[in-house]
Simulated scan of single mutants.
Amino acid sequence: MPVVPDRSWAPPEPYDLRRSLLVLRRGPYDPAFRETRDGAVWRATRTPRGPATVRLLPGRPVRATAWGPGADWVLDRLPALLGADDAPDAFTACHPLVAEAHRRHGGVRLIRTGLVLESLIPTVLEQRVTTEEAYRAWRLLLRRFGEPAPGPGGEAAPELWVMPEPRTFALLPSWEWHRAGVDPKRSAAVVRAVRLAGRMEEAARLPLPAALARLQAVPGIGPWTAAETLQRSNGDPDAVTVGDLHLPGVVGHALAGEREADDARMLELLAPYAGQRYRATRLILLSGVLPARRAPRQRHARIARL
């Protein structure tokens, strides 16, 4: 029988494996992300060496088992994926609500996948639509044009799918994007990005300003998409999201009781957290102190039915 590679990493206490990795899940039915009853997190990914599936079992240490051509690539970067490069002790809370969230969720670490396109593409799909529409598009594209993820098989292993190769995305005809509910602006942005796949992936090794500039050089990728991508691929604690419909109001409500805060006001309120603004917003969201949500910018509509 072939040897299945595995690895382990002992995180400092406290540590919350599930919440740390949950930012990678694109909805409860993400074909590339599953949780099983034993507490394990399963993830399918496309690495520079090919597809891989990794099973992460919580504990001390966290134990990882991987399958597929990209198994060694994933396991070699296991500590970064689990948040070893993060430095949560560098964070100082300047507001009681943030301090309480930091205390309660001290086990959440900022993860680093080292892979840009796998976060960039689903983030582009989330532009200007409801999360339900974006998650549906991601599911359909993976199941129709991706490939079954490598794995152990058997009833205990969930069915996972690896996202399509960049070339596959680049060659998708317009009617397939339409069937998935993706409008021409978003599909064009994805196609431009995957045609520059090598340049996009280099951003995972760049400092934040250079990485943001690299992604935003592609038409259709703005500050919101770039920040949301680099939060996952680079794990940068200062990759604050601007241009979001809800986040300024959430931050304004939590820190100053201002429901109608805009991006400028949000950044003003986050100024004491310079260098850690993404972590601060993550903690605010985890606090659960949220105002009533606004309606999406666009009406909910599946363009495949038009």
Results as ranks from 00 to 15, higher is better:
A90V: 00
R25P: 00
I303E: 02
E133H: 13
S174Q: 08
G257T: 11
P96Q: 11
G243A: 11
A256T: 09
Y15V: 08
A256R: 12
W42S: 02
S20P: 01
T47H: 01
P173N: 07
R55K: 13
V124S: 00
E126R: 15
H95W: 05
P48G: 13
R299I: 06
D183F: 00
W177K: 10
V62Q: 01
E132L: 13
R109Q: 02
V289F: 13
V3P: 06
H300Y: 15
T53Y: 01
A170Y: 02
A280Q: 09
A211K: 05
K185V: 14
I221Y: 07
V129F: 01
D236W: 06
D236F: 06
L78H: 06
A197I: 09
T131G: 14
R7S: 15
A211F: 09
L208T: 12
R294E: 10
D72I: 00
Q276S: 11
P69C: 04
A292D: 14
L206N: 07
R232K: 15
D72M: 08
A217L: 00
A264D: 10
D244W: 04
H178D: 00
G235Y: 05
V242K: 13
P209K: 10
P152C: 13
G288F: 08
Q127H: 12
A217Q: 08
V3H: 12
A137D: 08
H300D: 14
I284E: 01
A71S: 06
R55S: 01
A197Q: 09
W177Q: 09
R232W: 08
W42E: 01
E35S: 02
R43Q: 05
R104L: 13
L270V: 13
A280F: 11
R26L: 03
Q276C: 08
R144T: 14
A239Y: 01
E201M: 09
A40Y: 01
L141E: 05
I121K: 09
R205F: 07
R294T: 11
D244Q: 10
L267R: 14
P223W: 03
P12G: 15
R265Q: 10
P150R: 05
L142D: 08
P150W: 02
A10Y: 00
V108I: 07
R37S: 15
R144Q: 12
G59T: 03
L306A: 12
V191R: 15
M1N: 09
V194T: 11
Q231S: 02
